[in-house]
Every structure is written in C-alpha cells, then in structure tokens.
C-alpha cells in the first residue's frame, strides 16, 4: 500500500473510532444527565450556559466531521500534500490533536453534568479545561510524530535560475509587486467594525460584559487586515516587504543575505493554510494560491511569498546578487 493509502486508512480508522466514542459515550450516560445540559462555563468556573442534549451532541460530532473531513479532503486534493513532510505532519497534528480535544471536551462536559438535577448545578470546570488543552497539545505532537516518517519531496518548482535582467550604468531598475486577499480583508474589516460597535454599546450603556468581546474582535480584525495584503519591492540593495494598509510591519532583506531566488507554484494546502506559516528562516506568506517568489538565503533558510509577477522579481534579484561582489569591492 502506498503512502496515500496508508495515510488515508489510518485517518479514516481514527475518524471512525472517535466518531463512535463521541456518539456512544453520551448516549450510554443519557439517563444520568440533566436536560438541558450545562454547556458553557464562565471565568469563575461556574456554569453559565446550557444546551439540549441532542444539540450539544450534534455540535460536537459536527465539529469533528468538519475537522476530520477537512483533513482528508486536504490530503486528497493535491498529491503533493502527503509527499511533503511538513504538510503531512500538519495534517497528523490536526487529526490527532483536534480529535483528542473534542473527546476530552466531551468527557469533561459529561463528568461535570453527571448525576445533577439541573444544568445550573453542574460541577466547576477549572482544572478540566486545562487538562483538555494539555491533551490537545500532546495529541497534536504525537500526531505530527506519527506522520513524520516517509518522503519529503520538494514541491514543483522552476528551481532553475531564471533569466537575468540587463542592468546598465546610469539606469535605475526596480521591481514592485503586490498581493491582496479580498476575503481576508473583508472579514478583518467586518470584525473591526463589529468590535467598534460592541465598544460603542459598552461605552454608552455601561455594559462592561461586552468589553472582552469587543477587544477580541478588534485585535483579530486588525491582525486579519494587516496580513490580508502585502507589497514587495526589490531595489538595488535590498528586498523590502510590507504588510497591510498601514504598511507595517515591514521586513527588510539585504541583497548580501540572498543566495538566489526563483518562482514556484504553491497552494495553501501545501504549506498548511493561509497567512504566515512556518518558522523564522523558513517562513511562507501565503495569501493566495499560485505564483510565489522564493528567496533562498546564504544561511540556508528560505522565505516564500505568494506574489504577482514573481518571475521578473526573481530574475532581478538574481541579477543583483550576481553583481553584488564587484559592487561591494569597488565601494
């Protein structure tokens, strides 16, 4: 059986097992649970929200179907996903960590609701919530570890040195490009507006309970807006990247740090989603699928950004890199 078959059979088996647990355990305990059940706990640890048994069950199974189905669809959609170690480990972490998180959440919820007459009498959740998060992190790590063995092939890449740009003395040649994800900026803008609305209501009515919601929405909205667009400039001495409508934060890569550059077709499935992925030294800025500019550092790391007209950018960068030793020698 190939890698794809193995991964899918393990993923489907795991998915089925957890689905059975998520459905069977609450049904077995049904007679000992209140109707409705406590489903949400406040910061004090006391229950502050309830849901009918059937809705809570459907919600938990529904989220698991989304996670499991999404991971399997992601693995099937592009044959490169499973052949790259990083994306395989990402899927393993999502399936294992996400599944254990949901099972843990369900067990904690059930045990708090067990043998109480009404939902408001449910037990406190304080330590249980922490335990669930710990189990999720551990599960994510184990899932990534389990998916680690196997090939690590590089994605399709032009890889070869692109054409060079003729540079003449007395001329200034630059490359400028931009990318924007309309969905992300739309969501960011809406979140920001909703957060500001909540803040206005909280301020006018003196309703302090709305502040946390407002702050979370404003912060998430600002983050989404900031990383919904990017612009890249290549000038004589450096490569500059700026994010968002405010052009902050900015990233600055001196030409001396660049070994070579090329363009590559990448999709969010290959790098683990949209946004900024990976670690410093191997980061990917993925705002849309398609053409990406890849910059290989002298130090061995690389930086990838999805951007229009990447081919010309790579060509100019390679030309500047090739020219750099003589220009630094003469200056």
């Amino acid at each position: 059986m190939g890698l794809r078959g193995r991964f899918l059979s393990v993923a489907v088996g795991w998915f089925a097992l957890l689905t059975v647990v998520l459905v069977a355990v609450p049904l077995a305990l049904r007679n000992r649970l209140p109707e409705p059940m406590a489903s949400h706990w406040g910061p004090s640890g006391a229950p502050d929200g309830s849901m009918p048994f059937a809705v809570l069950l459907a919600l938990q199974v529904g989220i698991w179907v989304l996670i499991g189905g999404g991971a399997c669809a992601g693995a099937l959609r592009d044959s490169w996903v499973l052949r790259r170690r990083a994306s395989r480990m990402g899927l393993g972490a999502l399936l294992c960590g996400g599944g254990l998180f949901l099972v843990g959440l369900q067990l904690v919820t059930l045990s708090a609701n067990l043998d109480v007459p009404t939902w408001s009498g449910a037990a406190s959740l304080s330590w249980g919530a922490l335990l669930v998060v710990a189990v999720m992190l551990l599960g994510g790590w184990l899932g990534a570890l389990a998916a680690r063995p196997g090939p690590d092939e590089s994605p399709r890449s032009s890889g070869t040195a692109t054409e060079t740009i003729p540079l003449r003395p007395g001329q200034r040649t630059v490359w400028v490009s931009s990318v924007r994800n309309g969905w992300v900026s739309g969501i960011g803008g809406s979140l920001l507006a909703a957060g500001a609305g909540f803040a206005a209501v909280a301020l006018l009515n003196g309703n302090d309970a709305l502040w946390p919601h407002s702050v979370i929405m404003i912060v998430t909205g600002l983050l989404a807006l900031t990383f919904s667009s990017a612009r890249v400039q290549i000038t004589e001495d450096c490569l500059r990247i700026s994010y968002g409508p405010l052009r902050r934060p900015r990233k600055h890569i001196p030409i001396e740090r660049v070994q070579r550059a090329w363009s590559e077709e990448r999709s969010p499935w290959e790098v683990g989603g949209w946004g900024i992925r990976g670690m410093p030294g191997a980061a990917t800025v993925m705002l849309r699928s398609g053409e990406c500019l890849v910059v290989g550092y002298v130090s061995g790391g690389r930086f990838t950004i999805s951007i229009d007209d990447a081919e010309h950018g790579a060509a100019l960068l390679n030309t500047l890199v090739a020219r750099a030793p003589t220009s630094t020698g003469s200056s």
Binding site: R172, V174, V176, R231, Q233, D308, D309
Partner: peptide
C-alpha cells in the same frame, strides 16, 4: 505581459518609494 487584462497594479505609493 507581466500583467494580464484586469490585473491590479501595485499601489502608486510603493512604485514611487522603490523608484525613489
């Protein structure tokens, strides 16, 4: 042909900054 019909150009501010 680096831009197809309907493609969006980089913002003027960034073009100006890069060209100095």
């Amino acid at each position: 042909g680096s831009y197809a019909l309907g493609d969006r150009l980089p913002p003027a501010r960034d073009l100006a900054e890069a060209l100095g």
